[in-house]
Simulated assay, not measured.
Amino acid sequence: MKSPYSAKIVQPDISLSICGYSKVLEIVSNKWTALVVYAMEDGVIRYGEIRRRIEGISKKMLTQTLRQLERNGLVKRVITPSVPPIVEYSLTRLGESLLGPMRVLNQWTKENYSLVEQARASYDQAYYEE
């Protein structure tokens, strides 16, 4: 049986420009994105409420994250004219469809992250401690 590794690769078969995984990572790879999406999973929420729910997020980072999510069609922003204006955010259908895969990743993390930490500790001990 011929090993799949013995074939000479002439051209790359994995591409950042066409790979579905890299495209989705472009959307959700910011560490704040998942947290902001989770903050909105129960429905309409105001900016201040999102900020209070997410420990450590700055106003600037929250604003940037919300704008990017809105640009990508995952979040809807509604401004109600008043003094001061009321700004509410909610997930679009597209944003809601992202919750399922994110929950799967969250479950994987709960089940496996301790193994990742053990692997890191073993690696660090083997390669960094003398």
Rank of each mutant, 00 (worst) to 15 (best):
Y5V: 07
Y5T: 11
A7D: 08
A7I: 11
K8H: 06
K8C: 04
I9Q: 09
I9R: 07
I9Y: 00
V10Y: 08
Q11Y: 06
Q11V: 13
Q11P: 00
Q11H: 09
Q11L: 10
P12H: 10
P12F: 05
P12A: 14
D13T: 10
D13I: 09
I14F: 09
I14L: 15
I14N: 04
S15F: 10
S15G: 03
S15T: 12
L16K: 10
L16M: 10
L16C: 05
L16S: 09
S17Q: 12
S17P: 02
I18M: 08
C19V: 00
G20H: 08
G20L: 12
G20T: 10
S22R: 06
S22I: 05
S22T: 15
S22D: 08
K23W: 01
K23V: 00
V24L: 14
V24P: 05
V24Y: 05
V24M: 15
L25W: 04
L25Y: 07
L25G: 05
E26S: 15
I27M: 14
I27P: 06
I27H: 02
I27W: 02
I27K: 14
V28K: 00
V28T: 12
V28E: 01
S29P: 04
N30E: 07
N30K: 10
N30V: 00
K31V: 14
W32D: 15
W32A: 11
W32F: 15
T33K: 04
T33Y: 00
T33P: 04
T33C: 05
T33N: 04
A34F: 01
A34K: 12
A34N: 03
A34H: 03
A34P: 02
A34T: 10
L35F: 05
L35W: 03
L35H: 11
L35P: 00
V36C: 04
V36P: 06
V36A: 06
V37A: 03
Y38D: 13
A39H: 03
A39E: 05
